[in-house]
């Protein structure tokens, strides 16, 4: 009897320890980046200046602008298609093998490596449609990458609306479309928005798809049109850390850039969590 309890104690202790390891990894990553990056991030010029002296001084302003623009383009484009598509999957898609096929497709779309999206974007937007390396090509590539995530979130949120809410609306004489637009969507919206916010984090931090669709190595000016190249924070971090001519001097800038990315992701996660909890309480879902 005693040995059983001893086994349990050891096993639980090990599990607890391993969990601590995971937490410690995250804490280390965050603290390490904050410790080394805070100096850069606290300086005003880091935010407002262009990179100078082959990226060993100055700031990351064009990269911030580039990332903001890319995020804006891609999320707008993705939402425009993905939210209706998610509603379609949940409400209109015909049942049977076709639906199963579509489900498997969307699920697998989400599992395609981001570099493959980059290849696709290059073949279609950069070369095929002739956008060249541009904000538009990169934004659309990123949009396609997050499309399945938003589709699935929307579909799940719409599907989880209780049946009796729909029944109530239909029974009053609402059409199916009125039911969807006035009852189902408003209730599903907070969850959809949460999904979108998390997608913003993914888009803003993703590097592989923009490597050869938009990213400019060094472009100390802001883009003027959608067809211009642009810098972006994650790509800038990559360049600063692997191909800086003077790695020691660019290191503080790299840490600063990493810290901005971390702050962005952390902030978006907090916002998403807040919305989720707020509406969970409000709707008692």
């Amino acid at each position: 009897m005693k040995s059983h309890h001893l086994n349990q104690r050891i096993a639980f202790g090990v599990m607890k320890g391993l969990t601590l390891v995971v937490v410690a990894i995250l804490a280390f990553v965050i603290l390490y980046v904050v410790y080394h990056g805070i100096g850069s991030v606290l300086s005003w010029t880091f935010w407002t200046d262009v990179p100078r002296e082959s990226m060993t001084s100055g700031g990351v302003f064009p990269a911030i602008v580039g990332t903001l623009l890319l995020t804006l383009i891609s999320i707008t484009a993705a939402c425009l298609v993905a939210i209706p598509a998610g509603i379609f999957m949940a409400e209109y898609a015909p049942r049977g093998w076709l639906k199963t096929g579509i489900d498997i497709m969307t699920n697998n779309l989400a599992g395609i490596p981001s570099i493959v999206f980059g290849l696709f974007g290059m073949a279609v937007f950069v070369v095929g449609l002739g956008f060249g390396d541009s904000l538009l090509a990169g934004g659309l590539t990123l949009a396609i990458m997050v499309l399945p995530v938003i589709i699935r979130t929307t579909e799940q949120a719409v599907r989880d609306i209780p049946r009796d809410l729909r029944a109530a609306s239909i029974a009053i004489g609402a059409t199916r479309f009125q039911t969807i637009s006035r009852v189902v969507l408003p209730v599903a919206l907070p969850r959809i928005i949460t999904g979108i916010i998390l997608s913003i984090g993914r888009v803003a931090g993703e590097t592989a798809p923009i490597l050869f669709t938009v990213a400019a190595l060094y472009l100390p000016q802001l883009p003027h049109s959608l067809l211009d190249q642009a810098m972006a924070l994650p790509y800038h971090l990559y360049i600063l850390s692997v191909s800086s001519p003077e790695p020691d001097k660019s290191l503080p800038l790299a840490f600063g850039t990493a810290l901005i990315l971390l702050i962005l992701v952390l902030g978006l996660n907090l916002v998403a969590n807040f919305i989720r909890n707020y509406y969970k309480k409000k709707f008692k879902l």
Binding site: P162, D164, L165, A167, A168, S169, I170, A171, I172, G173, A174, T175, V183, P186, V187, K282, F283
Partner: peptide, 19 residues
């Protein structure tokens, strides 16, 4: 849809909209 405007219905579980 028009029919249901003339024939109202109340369900087993109260199902108000979250409005």
């Amino acid at each position: 849809v028009d029919l249901r405007k003339k024939v109202g219905m109340v369900f087993q579980k109260p199902n108000p909209f979250p409005k």
